[in-house]
């Protein structure tokens, strides 16, 4: 470019270069746009695969049976196709997990955001982020071989595979996530609001509970919803520790398969492509996708609200 300016070639030549330049720029923009479109294609791909495979499933199984039958045994001689047992397993483990993660995560977030010294926060926050990245299969190990044996000492007739242990470990796993997202929401509340509250003579606790928390509500709710979505979609912990037997029960002391555990169980075996058992994992996956999709949209909306508030 510099040489063209020095030598000053005829205008026609410069224009020719411009055309080439513009063309390249255009091509690059189109390439970039197509790679951005990949995200859309992935979503479409997910929906297409789930719907088309599940459609094969619903050819043989009525939607009514799928939603109301109380048994799920697609691989047995006496096959039943009711999703409810898998949903009950998913809900029970998620409920236990959230019962642990929501209170602890919230308290930890409030403490970190409002009470902890700058140094403590700068130390704990990276640790939380580090813990969010620990692979879930490792947590499955903890659930099966550490937490369940301890629980068995307290509750003697607890089976080896139970939803309680899996749920507790899942809760521990989600704590850093909820704490981290909720803390971000609380840090986003402007300092003036806290200062106003202190100026009125409020203590730190009063400010935290009555000024900061309400102001950050939508962000905190977003953290909860994203936590729920993680719990519902969590696979390895429940596949390892919650058992593989689909049972319609909400009793955490029993073992039961979740939607995700069922998919893993079927995928581990070698089912022929196109069989009803093979299609059943896509039907189960569709339920899971719809559930988490709803939670993600809710969480996204809640997040957006808290971003626009101030």
């Amino acid at each position: 470019m510099a040489t063209t300016q020095l030598k000053d070639p005829p205008i026609s030549k410069r224009l020719a270069k411009n055309i080439k330049r513009n063309f390249i720029e255009r091509v690059i923009e189109i390439i970039l746009m197509f790679s951005a479109l990949t995200a859309v294609f992935i979503t479409l791909g997910i929906v297409y695969i789930l719907v088309s495979e599940a459609a094969g499933f619903f050819k043989d199984v009525s939607v009514y049976e799928f939603l109301t039958s109380r048994q799920w045994s697609p691989l047995f001689e006496d096959a039943h196709y009711g999703i409810l047992p898998l949903v009950s397993g998913t809900l029970t483990t998620s409920f236990i997990a959230l019962g642990i993660a929501v209170p602890i995560g919230t308290i930890a977030a409030i403490y970190l955001s409002e009470f902890a010294s700058h140094k403590a926060r700068e130390t704990v926050k990276p640790i939380l982020e580090l813990l969010v990245g620990v692979p879930t299969v490792v947590f499955g190990y903890f659930a099966l071989l550490f937490v369940t044996p301890i629980l068995q000492k307290i509750i003697p007739d607890l089976p080896t595979f139970n939803m309680l242990g899996a749920g507790i470990v899942m809760g521990i796993m989600i704590i850093p996530y909820i704490a981290s997202v909720a803390e971000d929401a609380m840090r986003a509340v402007p300092m003036q609001m806290r200062e106003g509250s202190y100026a009125m003579g409020a203590t730190k606790f009063q400010t935290a509970i009555r000024v900061v928390t309400p102001a950050a509500t939508s962000g905190i709710i977003a953290a909860y919803i994203l936590g729920i979505s993680r719990a519902v979609g969590e696979t390895m912990v429940v596949a390892i520790a919650a058992g593989q037997q689909p049972t319609l029960t909400f009793n955490p002391l029993e073992g039961a398969a979740t939607i995700t555990a069922y998919i893993v169980q079927v995928a581990m075996g070698d089912l022929p492509h196109g069989s009803l058992g093979y299609q059943s994992i896509f039907a189960a996956g569709m339920v899971l996708f719809v559930l988490t999709f709803l939670f993600n949209i809710l969480g996204h909306m809640a997040r957006k609200r808290f971003a626009e508030r101030y």
Partner: peptide
């Protein structure tokens, strides 16, 4: 789409 994909459970990618 990007936001939503970040929250899709990993096993769904497996099915895809």
């Amino acid at each position: 789409n990007v936001t939503n994909l970040a929250g899709v459970p990993s096993i769904i990618y497996g099915l895809l």
